[in-house]
């Protein structure tokens, strides 16, 4: 049985913090950074596949929150707003990377079709430890097209609701669900060999 998470009354909500920050309270901004830096990093890292780049994107995300704090209106959840900023920056980074790799014939990352993960170094017979499994899963995520990758990470890694994902990426809930499910099946197709070791 899972214990319900008790809401801490003394803990200000994200929306309260951003409002305090809008009134000039810099400490509120510090609290926002502490609250979001790691969860945004996990989202962006799984999305772009590089921790250093992910940290740069998160830095830029917070800088934008700082600069554009007045643009936030309480009609939307703060988490939606900050995830949208981070997601947009990550997509821009992926597009930039795609342009850089334009001449590379081996770049298979962005087509909307099923992929098989490379067999190099991996086989069902091989003993795969936890770290390697992580790497294999991350590589499989990276082989998905960005539109599947983003929703899969937001849903299964970040555990956001379909409604919130729909607002973040600005597509209907039905489309989000469909992408998540197709993405899961594509991932599973790539991770078949890991199942053998379970």
């Amino acid at each position: 049985m899972t214990t319900p998470i008790k809401s801490n009354e003394s803990q200000p909500s994200d929306e309260d913090l951003i409002e305090r920050f809008q009134r000039g309270d810099l400490y509120a901004f510090d609290l926002i950074v502490k609250r979001y830096k790691d969860q945004l990093l996990n989202f962006i890292y799984r999305f772009v596949g590089n921790q250093e780049e992910a940290e740069d994107i998160i830095q830029e995300t917070f800088l934008r929150v700082y600069r554009k704090r007045k643009a936030y209106k309480r009609i939307a959840k703060f988490s939606t707003w900050i995830y949208t900023i981070a997601g947009n920056l990550a997509r821009t980074e992926l597009r930039r990377r795609k342009r850089r790799k334009l001449f590379s014939v081996t770049d298979l990352g962005y087509e909307d079709r099923d992929y098989e993960i490379s067999d190099e170094g991996h086989s069902p017979e091989r003993e795969v430890d936890g770290v390697m499994q992580e790497e294999i899963i991350q590589k499989a995520i990276e082989k998905l097209s960005p539109k599947f990758r983003e929703v899969i990470v937001l849903r299964d890694v970040q555990e956001l609701s379909y409604e919130e994902i729909s607002k973040i990426i600005n597509v209907p809930i039905g489309t989000v669900k469909s992408r998540v499910n197709r993405g899961r099946l594509r991932l599973q197709a790539q991770l078949k060999h890991l199942r053998a070791k379970k």
Binding site: K37, D38, L41, N42, Y45, R46, Q51, E55, I58, E134, I137, Q138, I141, I152, V153, D156, V157, E159, R184, L185, L187, Q188, L191, L194
Partner: peptide
């Protein structure tokens, strides 16, 4: 797949 992704290690800044 959902469980695998959920169980991925969380990285820190």
């Amino acid at each position: 797949v959902s469980i695998r992704l959920h169980n991925l290690n969380r990285i820190k800044t």
